[in-house]
């Protein structure tokens, strides 16, 4: 990549007023560094990934509202986690976390376990039991 070809597309780096560093070749064929404000192909990839997460959140919300899943699934998606990451944050086995997604099991959880989840999501137990506080 030549230095003058380093892309200067719009990206979310703008929100923090930052630019990233790239390596490119100058007119003399020497390697140098150059700032880039972003590149459309990866901005689209990132936007799609975020749209995907939002769809997962909406889907989880629906599941909770229809009584198919506990609010844990919803909060997990809101925090961009998967079961493995959530399990490691609460310090439980994955299969236990998965089980807690069942509304019946979730409703019988002790306050001690609920508190663990609430701490990870940085909300109260009361908030954890409902889902309107997620966003």
């Amino acid at each position: 990549m030549k230095k003058q070809d380093v892309p200067q597309d719009k990206s979310s780096l703008e929100t923090t007023n930052s630019k990233e560093l790239c390596y490119a070749v100058n007119e003399d064929g020497e390697y140098t560094t150059a700032h880039s404000s972003g590149w459309a192909p990866k901005t689209i990839a990132l936007d799609n990934a975020i749209a995907e997460i939002n769809e997962r959140i909406a889907h989880a919300k629906e599941n909770v509202e229809q009584g198919k899943s506990s609010p844990l699934e919803y909060y997990m998606e809101v925090h961009k986690m998967d079961i493995g990451i959530l399990a490691s944050y609460v310090g439980l086995w994955k299969w236990r976390v998965k089980r807690h997604f069942k509304p019946k099991v979730f409703n019988k959880l002790s306050n001690k376990i609920l508190q663990k989840y609430a701490d990870v999501f940085e909300i109260t137990i009361e908030e954890l039991k409902e889902i309107k506080h997620g966003n």
Binding site: M1, V6, L13, E20, L21, C22, Y23, A24, Y31, S36, W39, P41, K42, I44, A45, L46, N48, A49, E52
Partner: peptide, 26 residues
């Protein structure tokens, strides 16, 4: 979604572009 993931791994901040190939050329 998988293709998008490939691009992100290859070009996202931290790679210097081109899946680290430019840093290696430098």
């Amino acid at each position: 979604h998988y293709l998008g993931q490939i691009v992100r791994m290859q070009e996202e901040i931290g790679t210097g572009g081109g899946g680290f190939r430019y840093i290696y050329a430098a």
